[in-house]
C-alpha cells in the first residue's frame, strides 16, 4: 500500500490500487478538517510551492489550505506571463525553483505537459494542478471521492460528462479515472466540442443532452469557456444554452437520485440553470470540501513517498 511515485502528473498513469489508496486516505483526512484544531503536525518543515501560471483562486486556495492543515509551509507564486515572455526558458525557471529546495511543487499551467517537463527537470515532487486541456488529476480524484461518498461505489455507476469535452482537462481526468474504476462514462455536447476518436477512450458519445444523461447516476456539467464563441465551436451562447443547458425539465432523463457536479466556476443560465445548480441534487459544495481532503492525501502520500 503505497504511492510509489515521485509525482502526480495525471490519472491516466495511475492504477486502480493507487486511486483507491488516495481516496481512502482522503476519507481519513476529512476528519482533520472538521476538528476544532484543523491542523496536524505531519508535514512540519515541508515546503510546498504553488506555482500558478494561470489564475485559479479555487484550486490554489484548496492546495494552500491542504498544505497548511498538514503544517507544511506554502509559498504561492502566481505569474500570468510565461517564462518565454520573460526571456528565460521554463527549464531555467524550474532550476531556479529547485535551487530554493522546496519539497513539493504544485503546478497549474495553461500549456499541456508543463508538469511533465517540470518533473523531469527537478528532483522535487510535482503535482499537476491542471495543465492546459490535458489533465486535472486532483479534480478528478475529488470528483470520484464525492461520487463514492454519495453512491457508496464507483463501479457500475453511469456518469455523464456534458460540455466542451475537447478543451476540458476535467473531462479527460475523469474519463481516465472513472473508466478505470469500472464506471460507465457517457460524454455529451455539440460534435464540434468532441475531440477526434474520443470513443476510443472507452466512453459513449452523444450529441443530445437527454441521450447523454439518460439513466445517469451522476451528471457533471462542464464550464463553457465564453471566449470560445469566437472559434465557431458553437454559433451563439444562446443556441448552446438552448440545447445543452441542464434544467429541471431535461434532468428528468437521468435517474431520480442523480447527483449534479460541476468543477466550477459555473455559468448559471448557460450550461446549468440556477434551479438545478442550487437544487437538492447539487453536490458542488461537497466537491469543494473533498478537494481539500484529496489534496491533503496527495501531499501526505507524496511526502512519505521519498526515501
Amino acid at each position: 500500500m503505497k504511492l510509489a511515485r515521485k509525482d502526480l502528473l495525471g490519472i491516466q498513469d495511475l492504477s486502480v490500487e493507487e486511486i483507491n489508496l488516495v481516496l481512502d486516505t482522503a476519507d481519513s483526512f476529512i476528519d482533520v478538517s472538521t476538528r476544532e484544531i484543523k491542523k496536524v503536525p505531519t508535514l512540519r518543515g515541508v515546503t510546498v510551492v504553488n506555482l500558478f501560471y494561470e489564475p485559479s483562486t479555487r484550486t490554489r486556495t484548496s492546495f494552500e489550505i491542504a498544505a497548511k492543515r498538514l503544517s507544511a509551509d506554502t509559498i504561492n507564486i502566481a505569474t500570468s506571463t510565461s517564462s518565454v515572455v520573460k526571456g528565460e526558458t521554463f527549464i531555467d525557471t524550474a532550476r531556479n525553483l529547485e535551487a530554493m529546495n522546496p519539497d513539493i511543487i504544485v503546478l497549474r499551467h495553461s500549456a499541456a505537459g508543463s508538469p511533465h517537463m517540470l518533473s523531469r527537470a527537478v528532483r522535487q515532487s510535482v503535482i499537476n494542478a491542471g495543465d492546459g486541456a490535458h489533465e486535472h488529476p486532483t479534480q478528478a480524484l475529488l470528483d470520484m471521492m464525492t461520487m463514492r461518498e454519495k453512491k457508496k461505489r464507483l463501479a457500475g455507476l453511469r456518469v455523464a460528462i456534458v460540455g466542451d469535452i475537447a478543451h476540458s482537462r476535467v473531462a479527460r481526468s475523469n474519463i481516465y479515472g472513472l473508466t478505470k474504476m469500472g464506471a460507465t462514462v457517457s460524454v455529451g455536447g455539440p460534435i464540434t466540442m468532441m475531440p477526434r476518436f474520443i470513443e476510443r477512450l472507452g466512453v459513449e458519445v452523444h450529441y443530445k443532452l437527454e441521450d447523454a444523461i439518460r439513466n445517469a447516476d451522476i451528471i457533471m456539467m462542464l464550464r463553457v469557456q465564453l471566449e470560445r464563441q469566437d472559434t465557431n465551436l458553437f454559433p451563439t451562447l444562446r443556441e448552446y444554452a438552448r440545447y445543452y443547458c441542464l434544467n429541471r425539465k431535461n434532468i428528468g432523463a437521468a435517474k431520480d437520485d442523480v447527483l449534479i457536479m460541476h468543477p466550477g466556476p459555473m455559468n448559471r443560465g448557460v450550461e446549468i440553470s440556477p434551479e438545478v445548480a442550487d437544487g437538492p441534487y447539487s453536490v458542488i459544495l461537497e466537491q469543494v470540501t473533498n478537494g481539500v481532503a484529496v489534496r491533503m492525501a496527495l501531499l501526505y502520500l507524496l511526502s512519505g513517498g521519498k526515501s
Binding site: 510565461s82 517564462s83 518565454v84 526571456g87 526558458t89 521554463f90 527549464i91 531555467d92 499551467h109 495553461s110 500549456a111 499541456a112 505537459g113 508543463s114 517537463m117 492546459g132
Partner: peptide, 9 residues
C-alpha cells in the same frame, strides 16, 4: 531558448 519551454510555446 526555443525548445526548453512549454510544449505549446
Amino acid at each position: 531558448i526555443e525548445k526548453e519551454v512549454e510544449f505549446e510555446y
